[in-house]
Design a protein around this nucleic acid. Sequence first.
DNA 1: ATTATTGCAAACGTTTTGCACTACC
DNA 2: GGTAGTGCAAAACGTTTGCAATAAT
Lengths: 163, 163
Amino acid sequence: MSEPVKKEVLIRARKILDEYLNDQNLRKTTERYAVLDELYKLPQDEHIDVESLFLKMRNKEYTISRATVYNSIDLLVECGLVVKHNFKDKNALYEPALTYEHHDHLVCNECFKIKEFLDPAIEDIKARVGESLSSKIKLHSLVFYGDCTISNCENLQRKQATS
Amino acid sequence: MSEPVKKEVLIRARKILDEYLNDQNLRKTTERYAVLDELYKLPQDEHIDVESLFLKMRNKEYTISRATVYNSIDLLVECGLVVKHNFKDKNALYEPALTYEHHDHLVCNECFKIKEFLDPAIEDIKARVGESLSSKIKLHSLVFYGDCTISNCENLQRKQATS
DNA sequence: ATTATTGCAAACGTTTTGCACTACC
DNA sequence: GGTAGTGCAAAACGTTTGCAATAAT
């Protein structure tokens, strides 16, 4: 299993949030930092939805409301500390933004496991398209959906075992 | 403004639906063909959501229910005649699949206009990623989000005029 | 005639909102 | 002390579901 983000990254993320809240004259509430912490504690390839994050936090020391999880996570997306994904047909999923290089996602059609990849050619496409359609492209979302070709995929086996 | 799909394409689409319904032993209801027709009447770069399609059809000769629009459109996606998109934060949007070559989308951050593009390098990325992550990639979704660099973008002006 | 499909309205799950209360500045 | 932000519950929103009525085979 992949490791959660290093402590230094979390510290850097907290600092960025500090600055953002200062700049925007927003208040430094414990809830905002708590949501940041929880998201940055996720293992590398895990993506979480708001409801799961809410329940997870409720099961710990936190007393936080659903509405505040929604508000805080939106704020974290705005200041670039968290990335929001809208994969096919699913609720929004979130992951920390500072942790690793920018990456894209491959969703398995069979077990729904999400794998990450990085292919620099996407930047070339972005440059060409931005040029030809007169747009300064800020963000992209690239998702592949495929069938696993590993003969006994552990994710699929685990999924079958539980259903 | 772009033109709607040529009549030949619609005829071809209807034929494919015929065959699909035959093969699957499903019934040829007027509603299924009506939804297909309406979607294939859209101008090239227009994408529509279920509610708008439902209202549009209700305002015409059709008497169709929301549930049937949902059911029919799902069926059309399954048989490959219609493509479903999940752009950031928005409801699902649909467009006819047979009309033009496969293309991807650039969403304007300012006016939300959706432009289409085609860059073959995406297929190279797909091949590399499929190989390295052991997946037979079937589908992809590539969306760029950018700021328009056209000095007086007509879409933006139109939007500002109405707000 | 049989039964898949429809239309409607109610139910569902996620997200947003309104408002009184709380805690940050 | 003033007000941004919270918690809660209700509302809103897109979508799905159950079921009786309808229409395709």
